[in-house]
Amino acid sequence: MKSLKLLLLLAVVGLGSVATVMYSGIVNVAADEPHSDLVFWLLAETRENSIKKAAQHIAVPDLSDPELLLTGGVDYEYMCSSCHLKPGQHESDMSLGLYPAPPNLTTANKGHLGHEHGDDGQAARKNFWVIKHGIKASGMPAWGKTHDDHRIWAMVAFLKQLPTLTPEQYQVLTAID
């Protein structure tokens, strides 16, 4: 009986603490004020493990067709480059203003700090899932609501080549016909 009362008391105290934090307004949600290291780590680990688990069974199609680079390139230029940058660009309004900062996709996977991409297949699966479903409260939209899987795979194929492209190659691949 005593332990039940103690459990009840702990639950009330716990809920009270959560409600106090929620309604007092003490949590700073400003994007120009970074999380503490602990909160950042908690959120990043949760995100990475969630994506890894959700994407693990996705079958990766053949991404070597050059035609995919043309479709994916144009979509990348108009949907992604303002946040994830293009060859020769180091920052943009969006890359500086968003928090967490969107990864610079013009650098090789190894250059992305804070998370691992795994092999090519795993990176492709994760990229496909993130483009299709987006990431909550991060600024990353769910493009799957307006784009079919073929078009998203084309973007994945383009992302694979993006770190190797020069600004001139990028311009040709992403230009409108």
Partner: peptide, 23 residues
């Protein structure tokens, strides 16, 4: 923008490379 193909150097392009083929 239209593709700026004037800077393409065909002699240096590897025609097995998907990027070169796409360009």
């Amino acid at each position: 923008e239209k593709a700026d193909c004037s800077k393409m150097d065909h002699s240096k392009m590897d025609m097995k490379d998907p990027v070169a083929i796409a360009m």
